[in-house]
Computed example of a mutant assay.
Amino acid sequence: MNNYILYDDAAVRPHLLPFTFTRPVSEIRCGILTLTEKWAHFLHAKPSFLTEPYLQHKFPFVATNDNIFLNGAVCATASIATAVGQLKAGEALIALENDQVIAYRSPFEVVKPVSELKTVLFPEPIVTIQRLWDIYGENGAQIKADFTTLTQGRVSQPVADPFTHVYAPENVFLEEGARVRASILNAENGPIYIGKNATVNEGSVIMGPFALGEDSTVNWGAKMRMNTSIGPHCKIGGEVSNSVLFGFSNKGHDGFLGNSVLGEWCNLGANCNNSNLKNDYTNVKLYSYATETLEDTNRLFCGLFMGDFTKAGISTLFNTGTVVGVNTNVFGAGFQPKHIPSFSWGGAAEGFTEYRIEKALQVAYETVSRRGEAFGEIEEEILKHVFEISRGNNQK
């Protein structure tokens, strides 16, 4: 049986911070599934990870004398998996359209093997997540692809509620235990996937493509617009458009979230809003950890990117193209800065101070424990490491 290892491309990972502060690249969610889950599904195997040393305890690396290294930024497909499975020792699978490395077979931890290994060209277009805005930019298409993957040959649970109206019911799939009450599901423009034991509460309007993860809840009167993915164990409400929540995060109240990505264990207070379009209709610029400058996204619509364990107080306003780091507490009047470093405490009006690590860890522990999940020494050490490399805004 082949040994698969998902690796972080050193040229990609810095551009996906702050999300890759706390996870390998492939643990990013785009569509219904994470990139790891896409690979695992098509390969019928559970890969290990080659990532930053401080993350390896949580995401183990398992090597043998014959490994197939997989680019963690690639959105796997059935045809990619077939080509990967046919690789011979010393071969690298390269995308014909852009020379992107997809995978390679080698006993060595070589991340850029093109010059050393025999090239096998993959003729089909591929999708890779290389910048923050790719996460929401590719999300609608990935929902459609994952929907086909997860539902092929299966029968949906029925929408039993007589007060729920469904448009294009053939594009709606409910997993076991999913409940929809007195809502509108419009799947005419793309599929709607409701995960296991997930709930859509009364008065909600959902437009596909849309995905709701296991045990997640759409709150009363919510407006879920196209190309939105809500990961597992989330609570979502208000108006949400073309956004991704990785999992275990809450935006339960009214307020707008658009063209945005939230990591895990985030919380937006009541009436939080973000801008996703500039008044002058010019391209949005976004803070890049890789260059420590504002980078042109070449997109008119671009919103909020929030790292794990970050919280925003009630009525917090985020400007167009805002990047907030890990374990930050943001609150107060006025639009917040376009970049808020990890472990910051405060807001635009009050100013920011350093979030004391002892307090930050205690809040993180309480946040996770109240959901019945484990927050142990491994998770604590990851946050301590991010804290140290983030001090003085010297984040790498």
Rank of each mutant, 00 (worst) to 15 (best):
Q130L: 14
E138D: 09
L132Y: 05
K144N: 10
L150G: 06
L117I: 03
G153T: 03
L117W: 06
V127A: 15
T148R: 09
E124H: 09
E116R: 14
I143P: 03
W133G: 04
T151N: 08
I135Y: 00
Y136P: 02
R131T: 07
K118D: 11
S156M: 12
E138I: 06
E124K: 13
V127N: 09
F122K: 03
T151E: 12
A145H: 05
G137P: 06
R131G: 02
E124I: 12
W133V: 02
E116F: 12
T149V: 08
S156W: 09
T119C: 07
Q130Y: 01
S156K: 12
F122L: 02
E138F: 11
L150T: 09
Q130S: 11
G153F: 01
A141V: 11
E138L: 08
Q142S: 07
G140D: 07
K144I: 13
E116M: 10
T148S: 10
F147Q: 02
L117N: 06
V127H: 06
T151P: 11
W133C: 00
W133R: 04
I129F: 08
R154I: 02
D134H: 09
E124Q: 14
T148P: 00
A145E: 10
W133L: 02
P123C: 03
V155F: 10
V120Y: 10
Y136F: 11
T149P: 01
T128N: 12
N139T: 00
A141M: 13
G140P: 09
T128Q: 15
V127M: 03
N139G: 00
E138A: 14
L132D: 05
P123R: 05
P125R: 04
A145T: 01
Q130G: 14
D134T: 11
R154A: 11
V127C: 09
T148Y: 03
F122A: 10
T151Q: 13
R154G: 05
E138K: 11
F147K: 02
E116L: 15
I135Q: 00
N139Q: 14
P123M: 13
G137K: 07
K144S: 12
D146P: 08
T149Y: 00
W133S: 04
Q130C: 10
T128R: 08
W133E: 02
V120M: 03
Q130P: 00
E124R: 03
Q130M: 09
V155C: 08
A141R: 12
K118R: 15
Q152T: 15
A145S: 14
V127Y: 06
E138M: 05
L121Y: 13
N139M: 02
I126K: 08
Q142L: 07
D134Q: 01
D134Y: 09
E124C: 09
R154L: 15
I129H: 00
P125Y: 07
V127Q: 08
T128S: 14
E124L: 13
K118V: 06
D134C: 03
E138T: 01
A141S: 15
V155D: 09
D146Y: 00
T149I: 01
T148M: 02
E138C: 05
P123I: 08
D146S: 04
L121D: 00
F147T: 00
K118H: 15
D146G: 04
